[in-house]
Each structure stands twice: as C-alpha cells, then as structure tokens.
Simulated assay, not measured.
Amino acid sequence: MALKNLQLSLQFGNLKDAARHRAALPRHSVTRWIRHALENDAEITVRIVDAEEGQALNRDYRQKDYATNVLTFDYTQEPVVTADLVLCAPVVAKEAKENKKTLQAHYAHLLVHGTLHAQGYDHETSQQDAEEMEALETRVLAGLGFRNPY
C-alpha cells in the first residue's frame, strides 16, 4: 500500500525542557508515523505545548479543565484530512515514565492515535469502536517497529 502525502507543520511551544522533546520528535519520524496512519492525503499541524497551554485548550474546547496528552482538532476528512494535533509535553513525559515506555514510543502512539481521530475514529462512542481503533493503532505501530501500546 502506498503511503499518503502529508504536508506537516511541526511546532514547539514554550517548553521548559524543549531539547528533550525535540530530540524525541525528529521531523522525519513524525512524518513517517503520521503517514502510516493516514487513509487520505493530509495537511496536519503538530504542536507540542506546555501544561498551561494544554489545559487552556482542553478547557476552552472540551470543557475539561486539565491538561491531557493529545487533542485532535479535525477540520476535514475528505478528500484531504486537515487537522491540528496538540500534544502536551509534560503529560506525555509523565505517562511515558509511568508506562515504562520511551518518550519517542509514547509520542509515536499519540500521533497515530490523534491521526486516527482526525479521520473520524473515536474510542469514546462504543466498546466496539474503541476495540477497532485500538486494533488499528496496534497494527500501525507494529508496522513502525513499536510494541503494543495497550
């Protein structure tokens, strides 16, 4: 299967330990991870933020007043997927440590997860949808050389 085209904007907000997160997210890797999860061509912005920005976005757009690992803002799904993926660096780092994963492996998982959300997959609608999305994530990540994130 041929990989889909991706126009990627990779942005880093004001992070305390930005070098660590930049090292875990080389542009070529981010591009590769997202392209493997795409069903259509895409224009995606990935923004890595601090806890304050992550919490403000989650509060303003989801009415949940805490920083979460990844937020997906999907605008179109066809013919081109357009979306913003916002990842909260401190939350990602904390979860990676708690789950005994490398920071890079956790970022890969969350970028695949967010990319699937941008294409209409949703694990919160039903148990069947959650199982389908998790199976797809696991398959994509295995193809990229990462172990099952669940």
Results as ranks from 00 to 15, higher is better:
T138E: 11
V46I: 11
H123Q: 15
Y61H: 08
L136H: 10
A96D: 04
L110W: 09
T45G: 04
A118I: 08
T82D: 02
Q55T: 15
L85V: 05
E53W: 03
V81N: 00
P90N: 04
E131T: 09
G114P: 11
Y121F: 14
T72F: 03
F73D: 10
G120S: 08
L136P: 02
H117F: 13
T115Q: 09
V81I: 15
Y121E: 11
T138Q: 12
E52G: 05
T125F: 12
N69K: 05
Q128L: 14
T125A: 14
Y107R: 12
N58P: 01
A105T: 06
C88G: 02
Q77I: 09
G54W: 14
L136R: 12
P79V: 06
I48R: 08
G120Y: 09
V46L: 08
E131W: 00
T138H: 02
L71M: 08
A118E: 10
T115H: 06
Q104L: 06
E78F: 12
E53T: 14
A83K: 03
N99H: 15
V80P: 00
N58G: 01
A67D: 13
Q63Y: 09
A142R: 15
G120R: 06
T102W: 04
P90T: 01
L141N: 03
V80H: 08
V92G: 01
T45I: 03
A96I: 04
D129V: 05
E95G: 00
A51D: 13
A105S: 15
C88W: 02
L87P: 00
L136G: 01
G114C: 08
Q119I: 13
L57V: 12
A130T: 10
Y107H: 13
E132S: 07
L103G: 13
V112T: 10
D84G: 07
L141H: 07
L111A: 07
E124M: 12
T115V: 05
V80F: 07
Q55P: 07
A83W: 11
P79Y: 02
V92R: 05
Q63H: 13
A89M: 03
N58A: 09
Y61F: 08
E98Y: 04
A105G: 14
E98N: 15
G120F: 05
A135F: 03
A93L: 01
I44R: 06
E95V: 10
Y121R: 09
K101R: 14
D84I: 02
L111I: 06
Q119T: 08
E95N: 09
T125L: 14
R47M: 11
E53Q: 14
A108T: 05
D122F: 07
Q77E: 15
E132K: 15
A108P: 04
A83F: 05
E78R: 15
T68N: 12
E98P: 03
A93F: 00
L116D: 00
V70G: 09
I48H: 04
Y75T: 10
A108L: 07
E78K: 13
